[in-house]
Design a protein around this nucleic acid. Structure first.
Lengths: 248, 248
DNA sequence: CGCAGTTTTGATTCATCTCAATTTGTGTGG
DNA sequence: CCACACAAATTGAGATGAATCAAAACTGCG
């Protein structure tokens, strides 16, 4: 019943909904948009979320200033969102893994305020925003969940403000690693043994530190026996002590 | 028709809806929740927003961890929201003036994640959240506006992340002053001549700087002819150059 | 008028940035 | 498969901006 009416970027590879690519069958239900919906409600969301979009490594899902028409949920892969400044510098506002929602910053002005770039070959579910809003009016629990997701983003950003405003480099990196650890854990991956998808430079742009400081702090953490890090592979050796470093 | 059924904090002074205290008569319409609503829709919001709540200087509207049940729109006065840390320190996540909405951080977990403290004797409109959600299901433009307000908060927090992550003390203070200036301007006050409601220490906790740094930066700005500051009174003398300082 | 709280100013310390060089890793094409 | 070039990461030395510690000046309130 759902034709491809939705505004879609023709330059991007888009696949229509496939069997097995439905919310009701998706392993990310518990993390993603349909969280807490009944079977019937989920089917209605399924009608909405009928498109996938791929982005190869380094490719952008959308750019800052693009017309906002959809939010995206990460099906697989890894994204960063970053804001470009006039002087050529840029900073990273977030990293997103499977089940997480990208693009809500665009709602307020009708244009995305940042660009979403894939850190590895990735795929997202396209959630057309107009239709989502319509459905949210009818499905109360969906509306509530959308509000919770947006509010969660606000709280997340505010804890980032704490980090950037008052933490040392060590505290920042520890907080960053523990946050990744929890999110991998929630997805059934090892919380102590994982691959960093981002470069040191990207970590730095996210944490408000220079690449050299990131590198030195990794080295220090290793010397102190807190972790092992080899290239992009990380093994957390002393989570309690890492937690103690940031004491919250 | 609106009785005082809403969950309200009995320790706070609450006044029922008064003639002249309705959204449809309120001078803040253009800034506040009812923005963009039709006359009829506004009347429905009015039924919802029937309570006011006062908070004297230094008093909290709510505390971190309190049960979330309402968001608030500032009728008059000035608020800050802050997060207390275990070690006794705290940081400020935002300042709020008339027409601005406080408390959306509570939606995600059902508890407020910060405390809202009045910087001067203030009054807010109480917007019971359950009922707002119900009404938003029926009034599409209200739902859209709520989403825009939340998204705006996300964008605002992200520009704060830029400030905290990559700006010098001078850039931070200039950005802070210009932001206040714009908000006063939008409310019909002078954009170059205004009173700071907050202490230097509070500015510091907001900008991620120590009070001494705030003070020194004010002094420097004065020496450079950018502004005059005497106690809490500020006069911006060279807005273009202040803007140039932050170059966006 | 005096006292507590706030703000300013000064001297010093310290963490991170900057600049620079080196090492290591990655991808490409011969 | 190796060599090459380029990108990413590490390490070191020195510069710098903000924090810290300390004291003085100012303000406003009772």
């Amino acid at each position: 019943m759902h034709t491809n009416l939705d505004n879609q970027n023709p330059s991007q590879q888009v696949t229509p909904g496939l069997l097995g690519a439905r919310c009701r069958d998706c392993s990310l239900q518990e993390l993603c948009l349909p969280l807490g919906l009944s079977q019937e409600e989920m089917e209605r969301v399924d009608e909405l979320v009928s498109q996938r979009k791929r982005a190869g490594r380094g490719e952008a899902l959308y750019h800052s200033e693009d017309l906002f028409d959809a939010i995206y949920s990460v099906r697989h892969g890894f994204f960063r969102t970053d804001v470009l400044l006039e002087d050529g510098h840029s900073y990273i506002t977030g990293f997103y893994m499977t089940g997480e929602i990208i693009g809500m910053d665009g709602i307020s002005t009708g244009k995305y305020s940042c660009s979403a770039v894939a850190l590895e070959d990735s795929e997202v579910c396209v959630i057309p925003y107009q239709r989502l809003e319509t459905l949210a009016c009818e499905v109360r629990s969906l509306q509530q969940h959308i509000h919770r997701i947006m509010s969660r983003e606000i709280v997340r950003d505010q804890s980032m403000m704490l980090l950037l405003g008052s933490m040392s480099s060590g505290e920042r990196l520890a907080a960053f690693l523990l946050n990744l650890s929890e999110r991998f854990d929630a997805r059934g991956h090892s919380p102590v043994n994982f691959h960093l998808r981002m470069t040191r430079e990207e970590i730095g742009r996210y944490l408000g530190l220079k690449i050299e400081t990131i590198s030195r702090t990794f080295t220090r953490f290793q010397e102190e026996g807190l972790m092992e890090v080899r290239h992009k592979h990380v093994r957390l050796l002393d989570v309690p002590r890492l937690r103690h470093l940031i004491r919250q």
